[in-house]
Computed example of a mutant assay.
Amino acid sequence: MRTGRIIKSISGVYRVDADGEMFDTKPRGLFRKKKFSPIVGDIVDFEIENVTEGYIQHVHERRNELKRPPVSNIDHLIIVMSAVEPDFSTQLVDRFLVIAHSYGLNPRIIVTKKDMTSEEQIQRIEQYLVIYRNIGYSTQFVGKDDNIEAIFDAWGSGLAVLSGQSGVGKSTLLNAYQPDLSLETNQISKSLNRGKHTTRHVELFERKDGFVADTPGFSALDFDHIQKDEVKDYFLEIQEYGQACKFRNCNHIREPKCNVKAQVEAGNIAQFRYDHYVQLFEEIANRKERY
């Protein structure tokens, strides 16, 4: 029996990396009976059938898991935004951060296409990145001439997952990191201000002290697993200042003696972050029950 990590999954075949050796494996029938499917990132035990093939016997318990795209045991979620084409959006950053925290992931923010951005736009984006850094997030703003290898290696050990809209440059970053990958990239749709999907499956690639994953781009984010009362916990500064509100179950919207609203007024919580919190809270509160 060998142990390894699933690095790729296509048409029911799972490529497993076991200490640098690659095996194409299939799950035993018992997984189908349990209606359980292994996913990329899973640590699995498998029996070798021949030199390069085997059968998965056991999937180790997942530390965490993203539902869409399906990938598990993530150490760093890298939220990739572009400065332009598509334009930088703090609302999208905040929605990705909420998703990351809801799954117990450690998010970082990287903004691409600095070399395609005007000095005025760079200054505006940097002002936002300062706010995110003050909250406690790691941020990076990169262009094509930056040392991408050093940036990837600075994330530390484990599995780093690149996530973000189509067209923000996830595959371009990976190509810069490992030029021999030759991942497909695509132009931005000018009318939609977003890219076409170029990555069609999740795949892990080796990096120093771990792996990095390119994931299919998002055009919509799914908050179905989040309840309205949980949203305040996923805006870190709101969660922190909220502990001083008069009412323990304060949602920081219409309640009296709310410390969060006082801190927004005082400038200690960015107005745009609070606005995005309220918007997402009300969006989740108003969603229709599904049967």
Results as ranks from 00 to 15, higher is better:
residue 94 D to V: 04
residue 89 S to L: 13
residue 148 I to N: 05
residue 106 N to I: 03
residue 120 E to Y: 12
residue 113 K to H: 10
residue 71 V to I: 14
residue 111 V to S: 03
residue 159 L to A: 06
residue 162 L to A: 06
residue 77 L to E: 09
residue 137 Y to P: 02
residue 123 Q to M: 10
residue 112 T to D: 04
residue 99 I to S: 01
residue 136 G to A: 12
residue 114 K to F: 07
residue 120 E to V: 13
residue 89 S to A: 10
residue 127 Q to K: 15
residue 137 Y to L: 13
residue 103 Y to E: 12
residue 88 F to Y: 13
residue 76 H to E: 05
residue 91 Q to A: 11
residue 89 S to P: 08
residue 74 I to C: 03
residue 154 A to G: 14
residue 73 N to Q: 10
residue 117 T to F: 05
residue 155 W to P: 00
residue 151 I to L: 15
residue 96 F to S: 01
residue 102 S to M: 07
residue 102 S to T: 05
residue 78 I to R: 01
residue 93 V to T: 11
residue 100 A to Y: 02
residue 127 Q to V: 01
residue 117 T to V: 12
residue 112 T to S: 14
residue 97 L to K: 03
residue 137 Y to S: 07
residue 160 A to S: 14
residue 112 T to V: 06
residue 111 V to G: 00
residue 125 I to W: 01
residue 91 Q to M: 11
residue 166 S to Y: 07
residue 108 R to K: 15
residue 156 G to Q: 06
residue 101 H to P: 01
residue 79 I to Q: 01
residue 105 L to C: 08
residue 115 D to G: 08
residue 157 S to T: 11
residue 83 A to C: 11
residue 108 R to G: 00
residue 139 T to F: 05
residue 162 L to F: 09
residue 78 I to L: 15
residue 147 N to D: 14
residue 123 Q to S: 14
residue 122 I to H: 06
residue 98 V to M: 04
residue 153 D to M: 03
residue 163 S to H: 06
residue 83 A to F: 02
residue 89 S to C: 10
residue 148 I to R: 04
residue 144 K to M: 10
residue 115 D to W: 07
residue 113 K to S: 04
residue 146 D to R: 08
residue 145 D to L: 11
residue 121 Q to A: 12
residue 144 K to C: 07
residue 79 I to T: 02
residue 151 I to R: 02
residue 95 R to L: 08
residue 106 N to D: 15
residue 131 I to H: 08
residue 108 R to P: 00
residue 121 Q to M: 10
residue 97 L to V: 11
residue 71 V to A: 04
residue 75 D to P: 03
residue 85 E to S: 13
residue 87 D to V: 09
residue 144 K to W: 07
residue 145 D to Q: 11
residue 93 V to I: 14
residue 166 S to K: 04
residue 156 G to K: 05
residue 105 L to D: 04
residue 87 D to F: 13
residue 144 K to Y: 12
residue 73 N to S: 09
residue 105 L to V: 09
residue 90 T to K: 10
residue 86 P to K: 04
residue 107 P to S: 10
residue 82 S to M: 09
residue 114 K to Q: 13
residue 114 K to H: 11
residue 161 V to W: 02
residue 147 N to Q: 13
residue 92 L to K: 07
residue 144 K to T: 10
residue 78 I to N: 02
residue 158 G to L: 05
residue 131 I to Q: 11
residue 125 I to N: 00
residue 145 D to A: 09
residue 93 V to E: 06
residue 108 R to A: 12
residue 101 H to M: 11
residue 110 I to C: 04
residue 85 E to D: 15
residue 105 L to I: 09
residue 121 Q to Y: 09
residue 120 E to N: 13
residue 143 G to H: 02
residue 159 L to E: 00
residue 159 L to I: 15
residue 79 I to L: 11
residue 132 Y to E: 05
residue 109 I to L: 14
residue 101 H to Q: 15
residue 141 F to D: 03
residue 122 I to W: 05
residue 120 E to P: 04
residue 135 I to W: 04
residue 77 L to A: 13
residue 109 I to M: 05
residue 104 G to F: 07
residue 120 E to Q: 12
